[in-house]
Design a protein around this nucleic acid. Structure first.
Lengths: 83, 83
DNA sequence: CGAAATTTGTTCGTATGTATC
DNA sequence: TGATACATACGAACAAATTTC
């Protein structure tokens, strides 16, 4: 599914968070599998790493992903999702 | 030639890229010879490895150096230089 | 054969400054 | 004033490839 950040009235980090959240909910990104890296996402969507981190920070707060420092970001099992 | 990164208005990675590029163009660093390692450059100029990698990544894009993972970075032959 | 050292590759953590709205 | 967004820079951890011993 080709996605882009084209809503003028919604912050990019919220749009990106929605995209990745839906990929997780749909199973496109499976539990315990690596989520896209910050560098990949910044290049894929043409946005700053800083903005990607804001989006992923949100998903982490919501329990959709967890981070292993030096390794990457991973998809949480469904029982951890909080919203 | 003793060089340092002292321009306030130019990003360090661009300054370092310029320095190494000139060393290559002048022949100070000859073709097929090893370029300074990331660790050496970061210590030599007192900057982060991350910043060195950004500079060397630029020179690689411009065809001045090529990299062999696990071995090092090497100076490209002049016919590969692109700018 | 394997362990250690060296070097580059990848990834996240943090901070600062700038610009815009 | 605060939120958003981008660029730069340093730090840290871990991975992979290569050479040396």
């Amino acid at each position: 599914m080709i996605m882009s950040l084209d809503r003028e009235d919604v912050p990019k980090y919220l749009q990106l968070a929605s995209i990745v959240r839906e990929q997780i909910k749909s199973g496109e990104l499976g539990p315990r599998r690596a989520a896209p890296s910050e560098l990949y996402l910044s290049q894929r969507y043409g946005i700053a790493r800083d903005t990607v981190r804001k989006a992923m920070g949100l998903l982490r707060e919501q329990g959709y992903v967890y981070v292993v420092r030096g390794l990457g970001t991973f998809v949480s099992p469904q029982e951890d999702w909080r919203e």
